[in-house]
Design a binder for these strands. Structure first.
Lengths: 125, 125
DNA sequence: GTCGTTGCTTGCAATATGCAAGTAACAAAG
DNA sequence: CTTTGTTACTTGCATATTGCAAGCAACGAC
């Protein structure tokens, strides 16, 4: 069965399978990546802002996840200052497209984890 | 800030934060768990059925994830035969509640991973 | 010259993942 | 009675990932 799919279109090859969920999880399936997306959606954009979320992500993990999100086209890294060079991370349209996914997770999570609460957007500087 | 939350209601303590997304990811945030949920939604229920999905999950990982899903109340393990004892896994109502999450992931995934396709439900035996 | 800020990198220990083989409890077949 | 097959796992071990904590570079402020 998977043989057929592989020969069906050899321009399309998927790491694990042709299921959309599988492919999404190849990028987002860990404990931190969607939290980084959450923070970017909430308006955080700088490294220290992302580091300071209550979950206290490790710095090397944050750097790793941002790099992967950039490579996947969900995030762009752009300088907001030149000397010294300082960067902010912004969601692309593709990344913004994950809002309904976060929304669905929030809906299910609020129902099954009483007492949880959605974090507020950050004030723009 | 997190101090306040911690003292606010010490009956409610969360592993990493009080965000619903964080808590959901504590259970579901890896590459395999939502795929197991997907297969159960599609009607698979036995261990070999789950093992045989195209992604070829490792047996020890599948066993580990099913145990965790059972502990989290998303799945029940029940015997469908006594001698020898043989088990099937079924989603609970809580587990079924993840369908919108999978739906949102599929919607985003199909848009951004062209060529992916939703797997069909399995025929009931 | 020193200190602070920002965005990382690095070394290393702990934990998770996954390969491949193995196990147990049965029934069926010979 | 023995062998084989099925099913649902467990186990040992190598590899990969995670995360702690310290460190680094490039600036400006003092």
């Amino acid at each position: 069965m998977t043989d057929d799919l592989e020969t069906m279109d050899d321009k399309l090859t998927f790491a694990r399978s042709c299921c959309p969920i599988t492919n999404v999880l190849d990028t987002l399936g860990d404990k931190w990546t969607l939290l980084v997306i959450r923070d970017l959606v909430l308006g955080k954009s700088r490294y220290q802002e992302l580091l300071s979320s209550p979950e206290r992500i490790a710095s090397n993990i944050l750097a790793d996840r941002l790099k992967k999100l950039e490579a996947a086209g969900l995030v762009i890294r752009q300088a907001y200052q030149q000397k010294p060079a300082r960067y902010e991370y912004l969601l692309t349209e593709k990344g913004e497209g994950l809002k309904p996914v976060l929304g669905a997770i929030v809906a299910w999570g609020q129902e099954h984890y009483p007492g949880t609460m959605v974090f507020p957007a950050v004030e723009r500087r």
